[in-house]
Write a protein that binds this DNA or RNA. Structure first.
Length: 699
DNA sequence: GAGCACTGC
């Protein structure tokens, strides 16, 4: 089981980049090379060791003189926490103006906000505050620096389209190219034309800042027009700054590996044999791979006590219960070496301290959307260079580390794509389209995209919104339905379902269902105890299907006094149920604001199913006449589909069903299914079925 | 009788 590792030549260090367009007289020295390393310095130590004043002056110079500044900084370069403070010191938050800083994730917003508040010696929620969904820690009269998720900032634009209260908007982690980040950047570019005094800072971890810069470069004729010297330069400035992460030595395999799972296991054993103490983080693709690798490593520990008895092997993925996830953060016992086998969750969302070795399989699961079949699927695909660097960086947080890549250096250099495909180009776009419409962007196809989504996906999204009655023939939001749907922060099909329920008189129940549908799963992932889970599920099962079953679970949870013990006994995810309660509260507040009544239909499940159909009529399926294996065909496109085994209607196989979503693995499985009467489809959407399926003949 | 990378409003 010999491993032939070859240290690579890559130096993942950023360097100073001058603006090729000219115009920047900037020569600030970045922090000293990190090989001298000073891990998690306190702010004071940082201030002592880094030429902070130069960094600060450079940032302020750029922000004074350029409408847009792009800051490329490695982990620990202080861009996230320092820049907002520099701006405040320089007076950008005076006169009631606010500095906004966005992050893609809620947890990051909270932790960055509290770090900055601590450094400034102020209480969170006053001068420094944050806003995320379900939680607003700001005080409008005193908050000067506000951290928020980019999704929340887009929502704020619905009340204040030009974001007038902000003087500077800093968009962090822009290299991740999430759906919201891309939408936000497109909208900010529009705002900037109306508000030349607004400053935008885009912060990114990768050097590929050129495309961002080109995006914010005004067209030639606008450039001539804006020759006014009192205005900042319209040409974006780029600044690159080094971080304080430790060097990570990169090793590659000599030959491509036939089986990355086995190769990862071998790599862990080899590190354990040859390398000094330090925890190991392994990146694999999903739950299956991870459970298999954990088992292989634990078996090995039993077979060969001498060799790997010091290994503490732990899986990590989002489906684990909170208790199991927290095991990862417990300190490693003396004499043990922790090995965490993880999905991409450890690449950005969770940070493990104490990791010195990273094993990178070179793959991850990625979502792709096929606009022709309207199906999203998860596919194991090669990661990008940017991801590979991010993964390697996880080994250099406490001291110099090593990253073992299970692919060749030649592959890395010549074949691996520099960046991943932006989410915008591999997603269903209904939510995105309706958000832009609500913000007055009428010509969606002509919108100034950072990366244009495929036109077919766009057309498909417009079709879906039209069929739901959210857009009219001119692709304008309908009143009141379209505007109301845009106000509800959920998938438009769910929002339409809620609005119909308000008319049908079952909104109390439907917002519970909406809450459950908008989270991943209310059941815990317990493969070892599958039989028990199924038995418990039967106690809640409703003949009408999964959505009604959710109501029974929710009732049980409320009757138990929202007890975590009750959840544990019933194999229900307590965190998920708490989130359902949060979503439900948000929705009931929103409906009241929209002047819509909350009303219960008591036990009338027919009314409930009609409300569901009002949103999901496009997802209707009919059981194949002579099917012995539960095969259905979708009415819209005759796609072959099956009821997912986790559904309460699995093997019940009612003749007509409507599903919430499809999951595509070896087959297309319908998740969350209800039994319906086909005549309800015609009542709910006569236009849709006449138009799209002329042969449709219910009986 | 089988599966769920990860966010977010």
């Amino acid at each position: 089981m010999a491993q032939f590792w070859r240290p690579g030549s890559e130096r993942p260090r950023a360097t100073l980049v001058d603006d090729e367009e000219g115009g920047i007289l900037f020569v600030s020295a970045p922090p000293p090379s990190s090989s001298s390393g000073f891990g998690h310095s306190s702010f004071d130590r940082l201030r002592q060791r880094l030429p902070v004043f130069k960094y600060r002056d450079a940032i302020l110079y750029l922000v004074e003189n350029h409408a847009t500044a792009i800051i490329v900084g490695e982990t620990g370069s202080g861009k996230t926490t320092q820049i907002p403070q520099y701006l405040k010191e320089a007076g950008w938050a005076e006169g009631g103006r606010v500095i906004a800083c966005t992050q893609p994730r809620r947890l990051a917003v909270q932790s960055v906000a509290s770090r900055v508040a601590e450094e400034m010696g102020v209480k969170i929620g006053e001068e420094v505050g944050y806003t995320i969904r379900f939680e607003d820690q700001t005080n409008p009269s005193v908050t000067a620096i506000k951290f928020l998720t980019d999704g929340v900032l887009i929502r704020e634009m619905m009340d204040d389209p030009l974001l007038t209260k902000y003087s500077v908007i800093m968009v962090d982690e822009a290299h991740e190219r999430s759906l919201s980040t891309d939408i936000l950047l497109g909208l900010l570019k529009k705002i900037q034309r109306r508000r030349p005094e607004l400053r935008i800072i885009i912060s990114s971890a990768t050097i590929e800042a050129k495309s961002m810069s080109n995006f914010f470069q005004p067209r030639k004729k606008n450039l001539d027009h804006a020759a006014d010297v009192s205005l900042p330069s319209q040409s974006p400035a780029i600044l690159s700054v080094e971080g304080k992460g430790y060097t990570v030595e990169i090793h590659y395999v000599e030959e491509p590996v036939p089986d990355y799972l086995q190769a990862a296991v071998d790599a862990v054993l080899s590190i354990n044999d040859k390398e000094p103490a330090g925890d190991i983080l392994v990146f694999l693709t999903g739950q299956d791979d991870i459970d298999a690798a954990v088992k292989l490593l634990r078996d090995n520990t039993q077979d060969d006590r001498r060799r790997s008895s010091g290994l503490l092997v732990l899986p990590l993925y989002s489906g684990l219960s909170r208790v199991d996830q927290d095991l990862i953060f417990a300190p490693t016992p003396r004499g043990k070496r922790k090995v965490v086998i993880s999905t991409n969750i450890a690449e950005t969302s969770l940070t493990l301290e104490g990791v010195v070795y990273v094993v990178d399989s070179g793959f991850s699961k990625q979502r792709f959307y096929n606009s022709i079949s309207d199906i999203e699927s998860l596919v194991v695909a090669p990661i990008s260079k940017a991801s590979a660097r991010q993964r390697a960086g996880r080994a250099g947080r406490v001291r110099p580390g090593k990253c073992f890549r299970l692919y060749t250096e030649e592959y890395f250099l010549k074949e691996m794509p520099a960046e991943g495909i932006p989410e915008m180009q591999r997603s269903n776009l209904v939510s995105c389209v309706i958000q832009l419409k609500a913000l007055g962007v009428d010509n969606i196809l002509g919108f100034d995209w950072l990366a244009s989504p495929p036109p077919e996906a766009m057309v498909r999204a417009l079709e879906v919104l039209y069929s739901l009655g959210i857009l009219d023939e001119d692709a304008k939001l309908t009143s009141p339905i379209g505007y109301q749907v845009a106000e509800i922060p959920l998938d438009p099909m769910i929002s339409k379902m809620i609005l119909s329920a308000c008319n049908l008189g079952c909104s109390e129940e439907i917002i519970t269902i909406a809450g459950v549908l908008s989270i991943q799963s209310i059941w815990v992932s317990a493969r070892g105890a599958q039989k028990e889970v199924d038995e418990v599920k039967l106690r809640f099962a409703a003949a009408e299907g999964d959505h009604i079953t959710f109501l029974n679970v929710y009732k049980g949870f409320i009757d138990s006094g929202k007890s975590s013990q009750w959840c544990y006994k019933n194999y229900i995810n307590y965190q998920a149920m708490k989130k359902v309660v949060d979503v439900r509260e948000q929705l009931s507040r929103l409906l009241r604001r929209l002047g819509l009544a909350l009303k219960s239909c008591e036990k009338d499940t027919q009314i409930l199913r009609k409300a569901i159909i009002a949103g999901f009529f496009a997802n209707s399926c009919r059981l194949e006449e002579y099917s012995h294996n539960g095969q259905y065909k979708t009415i819209r496109s005759s796609q072959e589909v099956y009821i997912h085994p986790s559904s309460v209607l699995f093997r019940v196989n009612p003749k007509w069903v409507v599903y919430h979503s499809l999951v595509s693995t070896d087959k297309h499985y319908m998740r969350n299914v209800i039994a319906i009467d086909p005549s309800w489809l015609i009542d709910a959407a006569p236009h849709f079925y006449q138009l799209r399926t002329p042969n449709f003949a219910p009986h």
